[in-house]
Design a binder for these strands. Sequence first.
DNA 1: TATTGTTATACTCTATAACTATA
DNA 2: TATAGTTATAGAGTATAACAATA
Lengths: 158, 158
Amino acid sequence: MGHVDQAQLDGNDGEDPVSVLAELLARTARAIHFESRRLLAPLGLTPAAARTLRTLARSEEPLRMVDIAERMHVVPRTVTTVIDALEAEQLIERRAAPNDRRSTYVHLTPLAHERLRLMLEARRDAAGQLLAALEPDEQEQLRGLLERLVPPVDDCRR
Amino acid sequence: MGHVDQAQLDGNDGEDPVSVLAELLARTARAIHFESRRLLAPLGLTPAAARTLRTLARSEEPLRMVDIAERMHVVPRTVTTVIDALEAEQLIERRAAPNDRRSTYVHLTPLAHERLRLMLEARRDAAGQLLAALEPDEQEQLRGLLERLVPPVDDCRR
DNA sequence: TATTGTTATACTCTATAACTATA
DNA sequence: TATAGTTATAGAGTATAACAATA
């Protein structure tokens, strides 16, 4: 339980370097969150739908709904909702599992692959605009720092 | 409309540096978003409530609901909801404006200042854990880079 | 008895639109 | 006529709980 001075009470984080970085990281996160929503809207994808598509695309093997839930750290109920929406847009197909009749495998359609391509293009362009503020060697620096900061993609939260 | 190779279709962003950074930034943003929710829950604050408190704390002068809406980039309706919740928890007080009987000024209670203090402490501790992966001079580097990347706090989106 | 996916229900956050009181 | 704030309503995203089918 550390000391917190008046500057902090007033919403200014003071000069404590970690607090300043906490604020900067949070602000960056929020800016990116908004940018990404703005970006996905014209593609007809909600953030949850986009993450689900990426989760499926990243997987080497077909995933059941319960696998998707686990990788995205949501409950199965949530997966059902998103998958229903994606199926209505013909971006995924439900396929019965041959061995276990309880399971449903989810497959990406060609349309989904195309949509993913557009999404990644749009994101790269948006990131390019944001990153224009930095020189190429600084971008490289940032990459190195972030790679050590964020957890590995063991899960597919994003 | 750039070229996108198979690696990208499969969810791997390939080696294009900007795409890699786009992915890293998005992943960082998401990690921070989740961490911050986890952090606010035990304090009884939703992210929206926390941002509202910070917006009020940062302001030099009392704010009307419409001022809060503008600074947080939300519609007045949204402010009403959050302010209702904060009032129920006795974290803010509505005060009638002396000049204009349409306006309502929102004031933080002492309890809110205490809550904010706890929140900033928790966030600093959490950031400290995350940033432990970096040496102090690297933290300083990261700070410099992020400061040039994210927009200034003209608004209080966070 | 445990697992897979669904239905039913609810809560948070946000939005649009219509309304009231006031300016 | 314009502004401040509210009520009414809706939709996305997520959760818990109960349930049916299957293992």
